[in-house]
Amino acid sequence: MLFFSYFKDLVGQEVTVELKNDLAIRGTLHSVDQYLNIKLENTRVVDQDKYPHMLSVRNCFIRGSVVRYVQLPPDGVDVDLLHDAARREARGG
């Protein structure tokens, strides 16, 4: 639940989602669910020339299982809060 809650708080911020097939998409985080499926708005593909079929896609749903990384905005990371949450999660709380 830690990361589900974390991403919910991040809604509205700009992120870059990198997929396991190397496609990287930047956009505004619109929503997230318990599987960490992600919806992005105002998207643009980082390497657009390599993915011409993505040209007219402006918002999308990404299946959580295909995500490799999410690059997070620096002001969207509260380090102390995360440490506490991770310890609580480890305790099974």
């Binding site: 990361f3 991770a86 999660e89």
Partner: peptide
């Protein structure tokens, strides 16, 4: 937590960074 760790990933990737959060799936920040 709060220390620099080394992470080996699939598809020949390696990460070095400070661990800020993790869960039982080894999702991490």
């Amino acid at each position: 937590l709060d220390e620099r760790i080394y992470v080996k990933l699939r598809s020949d990737r390696e990460l070095r960074g400070k661990l800020h959060a993790f869960d039982q799936h080894l999702n991490m920040i």
